[in-house]
């Protein structure tokens, strides 16, 4: 059964906003070390908010690309294990344009969740 609003992403965003705007400044005044830790926590909540929103579609795109690249059906984890094996053995390398297109798309989706400001 669907939950009521707020959605998971909305609730995570609300928590992160509260901690960033109200709790962190109060902590900075009293306990600087915990203020730093709180920034780490707020940053992690922002990652989770993006993951809840963007993760499922990113995973299914990655899965589709891997099925096409490796030419077989299996779970996302199994396909990534097979790809990692081929890359360690050197069966595939950076000269494979289909591989590189897949990796660039996968990493673009990953960084959009983990740290969209990274350049």
């Amino acid at each position: 059964m669907a939950q009521d609003r707020p959605t998971a992403a909305e609730l995570l965003a609300a928590i992160a906003d509260f901690l960033r705007e109200e709790a962190t400044p109060a902590l900075d005044r009293t306990e600087a070390r915990l203020g730093f830790q709180m920034r780490v926590a707020v940053n992690s909540l922002a990652i989770l908010e993006r993951e809840v929103r963007l993760g499922p579609a990113a995973d299914s795109r990655e899965h589709e690309r891997l099925v096409a690249l490796l030419g077989r059906k299996a779970t996302l984890d199994e396909l990534n294990r097979e790809l990692a094996r081929q890359l360690r053995s050197g069966e595939r390398d950076e000269s494979d344009t289909a591989l590189m297109t897949h990796l660039e798309a996968t990493i673009a989706d990953k960084i959009a969740i983990a740290n969209p400001k990274w350049r």
């Binding site: 830790q37 780490v40 940053n43 992690s44 990652i47 950076e94 590189m100 990796l103 990493i107 990274w118």
Partner: peptide, 26 residues
């Protein structure tokens, strides 16, 4: 440690950098 746990999500930053570096220096 939450701080240690959160560093795991920084690994992807180096994946972005590696794909750039491998393009430059092939």
């Amino acid at each position: 440690s939450m701080e240690h746990a959160s560093i795991g999500r920084r690994a992807v930053e180096t994946e972005v950098d590696l794909l750039q570096l491998l393009k430059q220096g092939a």
